[in-house]
């Protein structure tokens, strides 16, 4: 008797759990089907002016970027276009150290020894020693960040751009551990607090706290036929084009100049080339 009742309660309990547990799963399936049905009617068309490529790449001519002043407008153009918060821009200086830890960067400057730590030497020539280097996401051909992402929130697009879905990212930061270039930033806090209304670009989404972000090679601008913001602001110091199109500007530059890439030995296939 005792054992029968116990058994019944057990079965009843497990069944209740099963039903409760299965419901959201069933719902998820249902909504997926609905979504598919909706998608069937929608044809996604590319903008006629959209720029396409097999692997977008960039050649940065450091001979044309001599000083911090030359880099500043480029960085500003990018960060403004993409609503990248300037967390250092506060009146409250006592939080500076904290803010420094939470800084968001899509494109920024580094010294040679930091941009190319494996190539650095004590007896570097004076020009390189003092030259500011622009660094950004390398949109690797074989990106480790994409490999590790548990939700496909970071993915490689057919045109080679390593893109992020800010709405899918769970903020596990595995991609930040995987990136050998430190190209990724995490929103440790609400970034919107640091974007003034008058500075906000309504054409590009702002992010919420708890997600990772990085350079997107201006996918949203390429889609409407525009060059990336940094390229536009660089006065010809940055070239952008299809790595697999022999006629592209980047290929012409690669053919006629010696270029280096960051941590090439890791096999990630970085798509940012530097003329030094």
């Amino acid at each position: 008797m005792e054992s029968n009742r116990r058994k019944f309660l057990k079965v009843a309990g497990i069944s209740a759990l099963g039903i409760a547990g299965a419901k959201p799963v069933l719902n998820a399936f249902a909504s997926e089907q609905e979504e598919e049905a909706q998608h069937a009617d929608v044809e996604i068309r590319k903008n006629e002016k959209a720029l396409t490529a097999r692997q977008w790449a960039m050649v940065i001519d450091t001979r044309k970027l001599q000083s911090e002043e030359d880099l500043k407008p480029i960085i500003e153009a990018c960060h403004k276009t993409h609503n990248v918060p300037d967390v250092m821009d506060t009146e409250n200086a006592e939080y500076d150290e904290d803010n420094q830890r939470h800084v968001i960067k899509w494109i920024w400057e580094e010294e040679y020894k930091h941009a190319f730590p494996t190539k650095s030497t004590e007896f570097l020539d004076d020009r390189l020693k003092n030259l500011p280097f622009l660094v950004l996401c390398n949109h690797c051909e074989n990106p480790p960040c994409v490999r590790v992402c548990p939700t496909k929130a970071t993915f490689k697009r057919e045109d080679g751009i390593v893109l992020m879905d800010f709405h899918r990212c769970i903020g596990c930061r595995f991609c930040m551990a995987a990136c050998p270039y430190g190209s990724r930033s995490f929103n440790f806090r609400d970034p919107r607090e640091f974007i003034k209304d008058e500075d906000r670009n309504p054409e590009f989404p702002t992010r919420m706290k708890g997600v990772v972000e990085k350079c997107n090679f201006c996918a949203e601008r390429l889609a409407v036929g525009k060059q990336p913001a940094c390229v536009e602001a660089s006065n010809g110091a940055i070239a952008f084009g299809d790595l697999y199109d022999p006629e592209s500007e980047v290929r012409q530059l690669l053919k006629s100049n010696y270029t280096i890439r960051r941590k090439q030995g890791l096999g990630t296939g970085p798509a940012i080339y530097y003329i030094v």
Partner: peptide, 12 residues
């Protein structure tokens, strides 16, 4: 947000 932790852009 995770700003209340000691983690940073570098030590994520």
């Amino acid at each position: 947000g995770l700003q209340i932790t000691g983690m940073s852009r570098d030590v994520s």
